[in-house]
Amino acid sequence: EDYYQILGVPRNASQKEIKKAYYQLAKKYHPDTNKDDPKAKEKFSQLAEAYEVLSDEVKRKQYDA
């Protein structure tokens, strides 16, 4: 799945936009606030993985290549 789609940001998003999108979605899908939703944990880990790659310039360049 596309990391940009997961975070809901365009491919040319700035680091600030990526961070903002991640924090909004992380708050929304955090397992502690969605105890009754088994998919929230999965969504949250996808968000974390996408953010880890896109927030790191080197990893992001490799991902975009």
Rank of each mutant, 00 (worst) to 15 (best):
E1D: 11
E1Q: 14
E1S: 14
E1K: 10
E1L: 15
D2C: 08
D2R: 04
D2H: 05
D2M: 04
D2W: 05
D2A: 04
D2S: 12
Y3L: 10
Y3C: 03
Y3V: 02
Y3Q: 01
Y3S: 01
Y4Q: 00
Y4H: 01
Q5W: 13
Q5D: 08
Q5P: 01
Q5F: 11
Q5H: 13
Q5C: 13
Q5G: 06
I6L: 13
I6E: 02
I6S: 04
I6D: 02
L7T: 00
L7E: 00
L7N: 00
G8D: 05
G8I: 03
G8V: 03
G8A: 07
V9S: 01
P10W: 06
P10K: 13
R11M: 05
N12L: 09
N12P: 02
N12M: 07
N12Y: 08
A13F: 03
A13Y: 01
A13N: 00
S14N: 09
S14K: 07
S14V: 05
S14A: 05
S14E: 06
S14Y: 04
Q15K: 11
Q15I: 13
Q15N: 13
K16L: 15
K16H: 15
K16Y: 15
E17W: 11
E17D: 14
E17K: 08
I18K: 00
I18S: 00
I18T: 01
K19M: 15
K19P: 01
K19H: 15
K19W: 14
K19T: 15
K20P: 01
K20S: 14
A21W: 03
A21F: 03
A21P: 01
A21H: 06
A21D: 00
Y22M: 04
Y22S: 01
Y22G: 01
Y22P: 00
Y22W: 09
Y23E: 15
Y23F: 11
Y23P: 02
Q24C: 12
Q24T: 14
Q24N: 12
Q24A: 14
Q24H: 14
Q24K: 13
Q24Y: 15
L25T: 03
L25E: 05
A26M: 13
A26K: 13
A26S: 11
A26N: 06
A26G: 05
K27A: 15
K27S: 13
K27T: 14
K27D: 11
K27V: 12
K27W: 07
K28Y: 08
K28I: 12
K28E: 10
Y29P: 03
Y29W: 10
Y29R: 05
Y29V: 06
Y29H: 07
H30E: 08
H30A: 09
H30W: 10
H30S: 11
H30V: 05
P31R: 07
P31S: 13
P31K: 12
D32E: 12
D32H: 09
D32V: 08
D32S: 13
D32I: 11
T33V: 14
T33H: 12
N34P: 06
N34V: 10
N34M: 11
N34K: 06
N34F: 08
K35R: 11
K35Q: 14
K35H: 14
K35D: 12
K35M: 12
D36V: 05
D36G: 12
D37L: 05
D37P: 04
P38D: 10
K39E: 12
K39I: 14
A40M: 09
A40H: 07
A40V: 09
K41F: 15
K41R: 15
K41I: 13
K41G: 10
K41C: 09
K41W: 15
E42Q: 12
E42L: 13
E42Y: 13
K43S: 06
K43T: 08
K43C: 08
K43D: 04
K43W: 13
F44S: 05
F44V: 05
S45R: 12
S45C: 10
S45A: 14
S45W: 15
Q46F: 10
Q46K: 13
Q46R: 14
L47K: 02
L47P: 00
L47S: 03
L47Y: 05
L47N: 01
A48N: 12
A48P: 02
A48G: 09
E49L: 12
E49S: 11
E49C: 08
E49K: 14
E49D: 08
E49T: 12
A50P: 01
Y51K: 02
Y51P: 00
E52H: 07
E52N: 12
E52K: 10
E52A: 15
V53S: 03
V53C: 07
L54E: 00
L54M: 03
L54H: 00
S55E: 03
S55I: 06
S55L: 04
S55Y: 06
D56H: 03
D56R: 02
D56F: 02
D56G: 01
D56V: 03
D56T: 02
E57K: 07
E57C: 08
E57M: 08
E57V: 12
E57R: 06
E57D: 09
V58Y: 14
V58G: 07
V58H: 09
V58L: 12
K59C: 05
K59G: 03
R60F: 01
R60G: 01
R60Y: 01
R60V: 01
R60T: 01
K61R: 12
K61T: 06
K61H: 09
K61C: 09
Q62V: 08
Q62A: 14
Q62M: 09
Q62K: 09
Q62H: 10
Q62W: 11
Y63S: 02
Y63Q: 02
Y63F: 04
D64W: 02
D64I: 02
D64F: 02
D64H: 03
D64P: 02
A65E: 15
A65C: 11
A65H: 11
